[in-house]
Every structure is written in structure tokens, then in C-alpha cells.
Simulated scan of single mutants.
Amino acid sequence: MAATPRTVTIVGAPLDLGQGRRGVDMGPSAIRYAGMEERLASFGCTVVDRGNVLAPEPEALAVGDERARFLPEILDACAGLAAIVEEIASSGAMPLVLGGDHSIALGTLAGLRAAAGQPGGVIWIDAHGDLNTPASSPTGNVHGMPLAAALGRAGDGFSHPGLTLPAVDPGRVVLLGVRSLDPAERELIREAGIRVITMTEIDRIGIERAITEAIDRVSGPGFVHVSLDLDALDPEVAPGVGTPVKGGLTYREAHLACEDIAESGVVGSLELVEVNPILDRENGSAAIAVELAASALGQSIL
């Protein structure tokens, strides 16, 4: 995939069932309102917007299993997203998925897996690991489980006829910017051999070396995807997220990471998740999401 793809196809996934704070379902609209299509078109991308996948609202649903709240409905929504992502990727366009909470990544990755015919790699840029399971999660919120599910490690409850799993190769998964992990997530990381580049390590080696290593590790057959949770950035930079953790990426570190992703030419899909305009300041976090997408898709200063 070239650094500036010929066609970028946007699809929104306004799902907020995977976490406990309302508002993240408005993330796709907030990001569009911040000028995503216009920004990408300004440096040569042909942009197609497929609208939003259907996502139910929690008021109309029963919680179900408290260990994985709203899981059947989340899986149905992810299956709908997977079908669209598979279609986009198979057409040769770049899928750009706008969340919604991070549980939607299961649909994105399953769709990429179906299109590629084999598992791929992912750079998971996030303050959290999202590697819990229903048995280990301290909250029962599914947005803390999608990477475990994409690895086929979250249990039979995540099986769904519309989701091709496992979707990613654990040897080609890099968590970048992590600073909050639960005990079971640490155990799974060690067992599966997943590379984790914490904020402490980034402080020591610098973002350039960190992202270069991440790109090298995830490159390979199938697909290469970047899943960017805005809470990877420091809350002072991007306050409009549901689970902020102090000590995150700076504005320039995040941009440099995305610029290096574009220059690598290996990334074929991108998603931006967890923008919550209710918690934001003047839609600033959505605006940053637009800027980071532009950097990741090839916009440069010169």
C-alpha cells in the first residue's frame, strides 16, 4: 500500500456498548465534523464515505452476562462492520474505520482477515492492553477485550458466524504507548510473546526507534493494520476520551509515529477509536484524530 492511497473508504462504527460512559457513539460524527474528508482530499486522497454500521443503543437492551456486558449485540455489530471492511479491502481501497469504543476493532480485524485469507499484523496504539477476557476482566466492559478476541484467546463466547477468528498473529502484534495493564493481560502477553512498548520504554529509546521496531515486527503477509485509541495520547493533549491515563504520547510523538507509518508504506488500514465529544473541549480530540489520520495517510509538510 502506497503512503497516499488512491482511495480511502470511511466507515463509522458508532458503538458504545463496550464501555460504561455514554457519548463515544458520537465519535464518528465528531471526527467527520472536524473535517476528515476535506483534510484527506486536500493532499490527493479520493475519499468515499460509506456511512455508519448499525449499532444498537444500551437503553433498549438487557445487559446480559455481567462478565461481558452486551456481548451478543457487540458481536452482531462487529460482524456487520467486518463485512463492510472485507468488501473495502478486497476492492483495493484503504479502510478507515471511525469509532465508537475499541470493541469495534474486533470487526475491523475480522474483516481484514477475511479479505486477506490469512491472519495479519497490528500496531495497537493505546494506553491499555485490551487483552482481558470475560473471566479476567475487572469491569465486564468488552472494549477491554477486543485484542484478546482477535487473537482467539477470549473464549468461545466470542464465536460468531460473521467473524473470522483468530484474525491476527501474536508474533505480529505490537502494543505501543501502554501504561495500564491488568494482571491477566501481563500473563497473556508473556504467554503469547506479544511485543509491548510501554511509555517508559518510549521515554528511554524515543518514539522514532519505537515505531520503527513496531513496523518491522508487524510487517508480513496478510495485512498490516493500525488501531489508534485516542487515549494513547496524554489527556492534556486529547481530553475527549472515556478512560484517560496520565503520561501518554505528546502531540508531536503521536504525529511522528503516524508520519513514520505513512513512510513505511506497509500499512493498509487504519482505525481511530474512543473519541467522546461529551468529554472533549471544543471538539479538539476529534480534530487531533483528523490530523493524525492525515499524517498516517501521507500528508507531509513539504
Rank of each mutant, 00 (worst) to 15 (best):
F70R: 08
A286D: 06
G18H: 01
A3R: 11
A149W: 01
G80K: 01
T139W: 07
A89R: 01
E57C: 11
V53G: 08
E66A: 15
L61W: 07
A30T: 04
M145S: 04
V8A: 15
C78L: 04
P138S: 14
G177H: 01
V48F: 06
G155C: 09
E253V: 12
V48A: 14
A238S: 11
G27V: 08
I278E: 13
A114Q: 02
D231Q: 10
A114F: 04
A79Q: 03
G162Y: 00
G120N: 05
A232V: 09
L297Y: 03
S180Y: 03
V245K: 09
T133V: 02
V24L: 09
E263P: 00
I261R: 04
P277G: 13
L163A: 05
S42Q: 12
E253C: 08
L279V: 03
V224G: 10
A184T: 04
Q299C: 03
V290W: 01
G242I: 00
L96R: 09
G51Q: 11
L147H: 09
T46M: 12
A289G: 15
G268D: 03
L228R: 09
P235N: 07
A232L: 07
L230G: 08
R195K: 13
P183T: 12
R39W: 01
N276E: 12
H143P: 06
A127W: 00
A13L: 02
A167L: 09
R32Y: 05
E201D: 12
P119N: 14
L230C: 12
L75M: 06
D156Q: 10
V290H: 07
L188K: 01
P5G: 10
L71V: 06
G248M: 06
E201C: 10
S269T: 02
T139E: 08
L54W: 14
A68K: 00
A135L: 14
I88F: 07
G268F: 01
P28L: 13
G177P: 06
A55Y: 04
A257H: 05
L54I: 13
V266N: 12
S227C: 12
V178K: 02
L81S: 11
V47R: 10
P161W: 11
L71S: 11
E208G: 10
T139A: 15
V63E: 15
R113D: 02
L181Q: 09
V174P: 05
G80W: 05
G171E: 13
I288S: 12
R204K: 14
S295C: 15
D126L: 05
G35D: 11
P161R: 13
T46S: 14
V224H: 08
S269E: 01
P244M: 13
I104F: 09
C78Q: 09
H160T: 01
A293Y: 08
E236C: 11
A293P: 02
M199H: 03
T7I: 15
L109V: 07
I197L: 15
L233I: 03
S90T: 12
G155N: 07
A77K: 07
E87D: 15
T4Q: 06
V168W: 03
H102K: 10
I278Q: 14
A214W: 06
I194K: 04
A105L: 10
A115V: 00
R153D: 09
I278K: 14
V63N: 02
A41C: 11
A127D: 05
T212I: 11
M145T: 05
M145D: 07
T250N: 09
P58N: 14
I189D: 04
G284F: 09
V224F: 06
E57L: 13
